[in-house]
Design a protein around this nucleic acid. Structure first.
Lengths: 146, 146
DNA sequence: TTAAACCCTCGACCGTACTCTATGGCAAGG
DNA sequence: CCTTGCCATAGAGTACGGTCGAGGGTTTAA
């Protein structure tokens, strides 16, 4: 089974523009062409494209994805380099994941306040505090709290 | 206690450029100025800045952060809107978090293969498979597998 | 009082990742 | 054969989030 760029676009939720852009960036050297230059995707190509999306969606730069793809194109002799690249990326993703979890806790904390029955009271107290702080430093109060 | 932009830059790991950029974008309407136009940050300002970073680091657009900050500046009457905004953002963050977890599993799967004693064997088998697929569709084999 | 080290604004520039337009070739049905 | 709807490329444009340089005022401490 083979696929046109349009079909791949529908399967991957990448726009046709993006697919062509990725090709131009050297991310799709494995995609064949027919006699008139049309791209022909195979299922194997879709798999690799899925890997590309996986790396992209975890924040890897196109340049680094290209490096990975080039390793893949070069065959089993590059397994060590692939492993190194993915391990380092894995660490970056873990760091991002942890940061998101921390920030989410912060957001949830704020939501707890906003959702509480005392929300107005708490928020007003915060205003009073920062207003006092501004005043104690002879600074204007920028808040329009009512 | 008050802080200069340089001190805030060191405390937040945001560059001075970025702080001024955020101000220009309307994210820091609460920051006071001295008689010659220098920004003067208070501890309360640092708190709000921390919230800004929290939202930014979870992928919120500057435009939406500005909306949130404007709600904060307007006082307790905007609690409902703040809650709505943060709840919707929370959903977006949860979705990102889940996607990252899924992609991380995919990366770990690949790392398992690359780290296995059979790595070369497995990768070679994959090559054989995609090469056969290309051939069965009369397409050239783009891989340089050795 | 002067030099070093700050601070300011404005606007240009940059990197990343697309997104689209213009122009033109190919394919399949009526 | 011709129209409709794909496909292609090159290159311009966009969105976003910074980053920087020029030009000029301020603060601090010797």
């Amino acid at each position: 089974m083979t696929y046109t760029i349009k079909e791949v676009s529908e399967k991957t939720n990448l726009s046709i523009y993006t697919l062509r852009f990725y090709d131009k960036q050297g991310l799709l050297p494995f995609v064949a062409r027919n006699h008139s230059g049309y791209r022909i995707f195979t299922d194997g190509d879709l798999n690799l494209l899925k890997t590309i999306c996986c790396l992209k969606d975890t924040g890897m730069k196109i340049k680094d994805i290209r490096t990975y793809i080039n390793y893949v194109m070069a065959g089993p002799s590059t397994i060590k380099e692939r492993k190194k690249l993915l391990l380092s990326h894995r660490q970056a993703v873990l760091a991002v994941q942890q940061k998101i979890t921390e920030n989410l806790a912060e957001i949830d904390y704020k939501l707890d306040i906003y959702g509480s029955t005392d929300a107005t009271k708490i928020v007003t107290a915060e205003y009073d505090f920062v207003a006092a702080e501004k005043e104690s430093n002879q600074l204007p109060n920028p808040y329009q709290a009512t």
